[in-house]
Every structure is written in structure tokens, then in C-alpha cells.
């Protein structure tokens, strides 16, 4: 299934968001997610089903003013 992660096209075999995140290499990272512009908490990822073309934002702590 093709999805867009942080603006880049990615192909994942899992339609479960938690599994897809693991597949993409984010398993061990401190990061927050949004799906199609809506916040998805860490706990909700395993109950979220992805579909073709979904857009995921994966954000982590960065410098800010």
C-alpha cells in the first residue's frame, strides 16, 4: 500500500498504523503522529487502519524559539 510519510512516498505492507510505523523504522523513536491532519496518539495507533494515499506526519522534538 502506498502512503505519504512526511511528504515522501512510502510503500508499506501493514494497514495497521502501529505496525506500519514499526515497518518504517519509527518503533524506537520518540515521535508524535498525525494522520491526514488529525492527531493520532501513541495508544490509538494500534486501533487505526490506514488506506491507500493516507498522509502521515511524524514529528519529533526540535529546536524552537
Amino acid at each position: 500500500m502506498n502512503i505519504i510519510v512526511n511528504g515522501e512516498n512510502k510503500n508499506v505492507s501493514n494497514d495497521n498504523m502501529k505496525e506500519a510505523m514499526n515497518e518504517l523504522g519509527f518503533k524506537e523513536l520518540k515521535c508524535a503522529t498525525a494522520l491526514n491532519g488529525n492527531f493520532i496518539s501513541v495508544d490509538d495507533r494500534e486501533f487505526t487502519t490506514l488506506k491507500e494515499g493516507d498522509k502521515i506526519e511524524v514529528l519529533s522534538p526540535q529546536q524552537g524559539g
Binding site: 523504522g25 519509527f26 520518540k30 511524524v58 514529528l59 522534538p61 526540535q62
Partner: peptide
């Protein structure tokens, strides 16, 4: 300290290093 959130690359792990 003020901080922000930005796109993370699974390869870089820059967020955790900064944190």
C-alpha cells in the same frame, strides 16, 4: 526552554539527540 516539533527521519533520530 522553548522547543518545537519537526519532521523526523527514521534514519537520523535527530529529535531524540536534541531532546
Amino acid at each position: 526552554a522553548t522547543v518545537s516539533l519537526r519532521r523526523e527521519s527514521s534514519a537520523s533520530d535527530s529529535g531524540n539527540n536534541f531532546w
